[in-house]
Design a protein around this nucleic acid. Sequence first.
DNA 1: ACAAATCCGACAGGTTTACTCGGAAATAAC
DNA 2: GTTATTTCCGAGTAAACCTGTCGGATTTGT
Lengths: 144, 144
Amino acid sequence: MKISTKGRYGVTAMYELALHFGQGPLPLKMVAEKQNISEAYLEQLMGSLRRAGFVRSVRGSQGGYELTKAPGSITVGDVIRALEGPIAPVECVIDDDVDYCHRADSCITRGIWAKVRDSINKVVDSITLADLCNDEKNGNHQEG
Amino acid sequence: MKISTKGRYGVTAMYELALHFGQGPLPLKMVAEKQNISEAYLEQLMGSLRRAGFVRSVRGSQGGYELTKAPGSITVGDVIRALEGPIAPVECVIDDDVDYCHRADSCITRGIWAKVRDSINKVVDSITLADLCNDEKNGNHQEG
DNA sequence: ACAAATCCGACAGGTTTACTCGGAAATAAC
DNA sequence: GTTATTTCCGAGTAAACCTGTCGGATTTGT
């Protein structure tokens, strides 16, 4: 039950873009340095986020990335799902297609995993990038 | 964000033991056949569950495993944690030791992961093996 | 003695993770 | 128009992890 570095790096990178929102594109080099992340790796992640529509890129000198929407309109869940795919603790609850039980037993536990899935999604969808920026301003890094 | 087969098999195996609770030890062969799981692999998992104190083993002929406590006293979370370790989406929120942030950025997102962790644990700790048995009786495999 | 079970450590094949690398393409600044 | 900057893209890769398998030792009821 771990979130991979994709999701983690993605969220912190998007947080940096959110801090810079409305000030033109920010080059990845800046983000990578500030967050101490490999720039080449981050590049891959930004590709996913761009294709998912959360960031826009500007190529060439003075280019970089910027959010396509206000920080308040992008949730942590959006970012994680764009990078890691659907958030679900097991395959068979990725969607709510009930017919998918190929093991006789899976039905017994399926309700558990569906609840876990919903609970995780509820949390990550309740936090926007703007919330993270506000937390920073208030020096509130633990409770949100 | 996936639960491994350890956790999944563990829960279904414990569910079988719960159904059989109070009727003496149940050999793994039975559990493995009923749930269509590799017996040798299940053996490893039962070792962890035994060392964690949730099952007791009886060796030799007519032996097997049985729960050490009533099904209502063992939660799905107990089983998963025994098999997979602490449930936490990232390393730095395994416990609440705030000092552990070695990256400058991690504090910004740490609150998120702590919330996710708590939310998952709340769900899995609210479901006991007895609940699963009751769901089965009521034919209720989705909502619980 | 024999059969049924658990117990234990080693190993292994496949997948995933977390990157790195090389180079192409676009664009602003000079 | 050259150069520096920056995104874009696909390939490759070492290490870790997952999901088991296997062989054999040990325990115990019949």
